[in-house]
Amino acid sequence: MAATMESVSCRKCDAQHPKLEFIKKNRRVCPECNHHHFMSAFERLELLVDDGSFESHDDGLFSLDPLEFPDYVEKLERDAAKTGLKSELLAGLAKVGGHPAAIAIGDVGFIGGTCGSVMGEKVTRCIERATDKELPLIIVSVSGGMRMQEGTLALMQMAKTAAACVKHSEAGLFFISVLTDPTFGGATASFSSLGHVIVAEPGARIGFAGPLAIASIREKLPDNFQTAEFLLEHGLLDRIVHRSEMRSLLTDLLEFSSP
């Protein structure tokens, strides 16, 4: 069978879709049930920023194994080969709807998008660059939380990125936080929650405690527990935005902060 005829099935409703159309036209959103599937940082970049406007920064950063944690080096090598990335995050400068902004986009394929020293450093540099150049900041989060294999060093990235957010905000600059599936743990408990405006994709799983911790809870949980819809209901989110409308929403929001 020809590659163009290859089909993919929706993870949620199982509907079959031609692969190319599903990726290029539908942007990995199921036209049947609206389920937003994972997308890579590169795909998301193409979705959100003006063509040819992205200037990548700090892409030479890579993770080390400072704690000599079991199997960590092997996992890093495996995911670098899989994603074509050196780390779990793309960061740089770009234009969105003509507005210049600093932008960072996570990639869940890289050790679950967990945040270690590299993500902390790249996010911090991205925020500092925005502060220096007096630019608004967009961070598209996708994260399985803090990276176990970097221990307390990973934990400290929460304090580091949050402090950078404060400086950016105190400079009178605008920060839009976009939460995508999944965003958990230390990311949610630091920079991802410090946006002046926080939006999320439909159905995105967002929360503090990870699935293992939640599995140990012996209480009835609502069906939409730890989803974008749950956060909106509890006043923790400004809006749920369909993937296809994200760029125009960011453009509209950036208008507010333009001089």
């Binding site: 949050a162 402090a163 408990a189 991802s192 410090l194 503090f208 809870i217 749950f230």
Partner: peptide
């Protein structure tokens, strides 16, 4: 703490705001 109520009351946000 982690449970339904902690998520409803924004545990992650409460922590993030303290860091800031």
């Amino acid at each position: 703490h982690f449970d339904r109520r902690s998520e409803e009351y924004g545990q992650a946000m409460a922590i993030a705001e303290n860091l800031a």
